[in-house]
C-alpha cells in the first residue's frame, strides 16, 4: 500500500492500480445501475413520465409516503434526542443492553418488522383488545404502517447525535449553569445548537429510510390500493401489472428524492468542514 506522502515511481503505479480497482468497482456496482434507470424511465418520453406521476394512485401513494416519513422524522427526532441524552449523560443498570437494543432496527428484516405489528395488533394479538375497545384499526391501516416506519428508522437520530454529545462533554453546559442559565435555557441555547448538525444529519437519514420502506409496510399495511399503498408498494404493483412506465417513473422519482437528500447531507458536511 502506498501513501500519498510517499514519493516514488513504484508507489505511484500501485496507487493508480488501487484507485482504478475502487473506481471501477463503485462505478459498476452503484453508478451504472443508478444511471440505467434514467433511459428506461424516459423510453416513452418525458410526457409519459409526468403523466404517470400525476395519476391519482401515484399521487395518493406519494402523499401517504411523505406523510409517514414526516411523522417518523418528528417522533424519532424527539425520542432520538432523549435517548441520546440519557445514554450519554446518565449511568444506570442495564445501559449497555439498551445501547445494543437500539441497533436492532438496523438488522431486523423488514418483513419481520411488519409481521411483529401484525402479531401484536392482529387477530388474537396482545394489544388487539385494547385497540378494538378504542375503536380504531392498526393492522391494514395507517397506524400500523406508521409504527413500522418509526421502527425501521428509529436508530438514526440517536446514533448520529450520541457521539457528538459525547465529544461535546458537559463543560459547556456547566459553564452555562455557572452563568445562571436554567436547565431548559441551557438545553435550548447550548446543548441543542451544539448537536444541530448531527441532528440534521440524523433527521435526513431517518427521512430517507422512512421514504424507502417497503417490506414492513407491505406486511402490516396490506397494500390496499388508494388506502395503504405507499410509493414503493405502488412501484411493486405497477411492475406486477406490467405498467412499466408508471413503475419506472415512480422509482425514478424516489431515486431523485433520495439523491436530493444525499446532496443535502453532503452540503451540510461541507459546511461543517468549513467551520
Amino acid at each position: 500500500m502506498a501513501t500519498a506522502a510517499s514519493p516514488g515511481k513504484r508507489m505511484a503505479t500501485s496507487q493508480k492500480v488501487l484507485i482504478g480497482i475502487v473506481v471501477l468497482y463503485v462505478t459498476l456496482l452503484v453508478a451504472v445501475p443508478v444511471l440505467a434507470l434514467f433511459p428506461k424511465a424516459f423510453s416513452h418520453g418525458l410526457v409519459a413520465v409526468v403523466q404517470s406521476l400525476v395519476q391519482k394512485d401515484a399521487l395518493v401513494a406519494l402523499r401517504l409516503t411523505v406523510l409517514l416519513a414526516l411523522i417518523a422524522v418528528v417522533i424519532n427526532a424527539v425520542f432520538g434526542l432523549v435517548l441520546a441524552m440519557v445514554l450519554v449523560r446518565q449511568n444506570f443498570w442495564g445501559k449497555s443492553v439498551v445501547n445494543a437494543i437500539i441497533n436492532l432496527p438496523f438488522v431486523v428484516s423488514p418483513v419481520i418488522v411488519g409481521f411483529m405489528f401484525l402479531v401484536l395488533f392482529g387477530k388474537n394479538g396482545w394489544f388487539e383488545p385494547v385497540v378494538n375497545s378504542l375503536g380504531f384499526r392498526v393492522v391494514f391501516s395507517w397506524p400500523g404502517m406508521m409504527l413500522a416506519t418509526i421502527f425501521v428508522s428509529l436508530p438514526f437520530v440517536c446514533r448520529e447525535v450520541m457521539p457528538v454529545l459525547q465529544e461535546q462533554g458537559i463543560e459547556h453546559e456547566q459553564a452555562a449553569y455557572t452563568l445562571g442559565a436554567s436547565r431548559w435555557q441551557t438545553f435550548w441555547r447550548v446543548t441543542l445548537p451544539g448537536v444541530r448538525r448531527a441532528l440534521l444529519y440524523g433527521v435526513t437519514l431517518t427521512f430517507a429510510r422512512a421514504m424507502g420502506e417497503f417490506g414492513a409496510i407491505m406486511v402490516v399495511g396490506g397494500a390496499l390500493i388508494g388506502k395503504t399503498e405507499t410509493s414503493t408498494l405502488y412501484i411493486f404493483r405497477a411492475l406486477e401489472e406490467r405498467m412499466y412506465v408508471a413503475g419506472y417513473s415512480a422509482a425514478l422519482l424516489l431515486a431523485v428524492i433520495s439523491f436530493a437528500t444525499l446532496i443535502l447531507l453532503e452540503l451540510s458536511k461541507r459546511r461543517e468542514v468549513k467551520d
Binding site: V26, V30, A31, P33, V34, A36, L37, L205, A208, R209, M211, G212, E213, F214, G215, T232, I235, F236, L239, G247, Y248, A251, L254, A255, S258, F259, T261, L262, L265
Partner: peptide, 16 residues
C-alpha cells in the same frame, strides 16, 4: 456515491 445505496429505497435498487 458510496452513500447512495443507503438513500435509495431497496425496492428501487432491485428494480435497477
Amino acid at each position: 456515491i458510496i452513500d447512495m445505496p443507503v438513500a435509495i429505497p431497496t425496492l428501487v435498487s432491485g428494480l435497477m
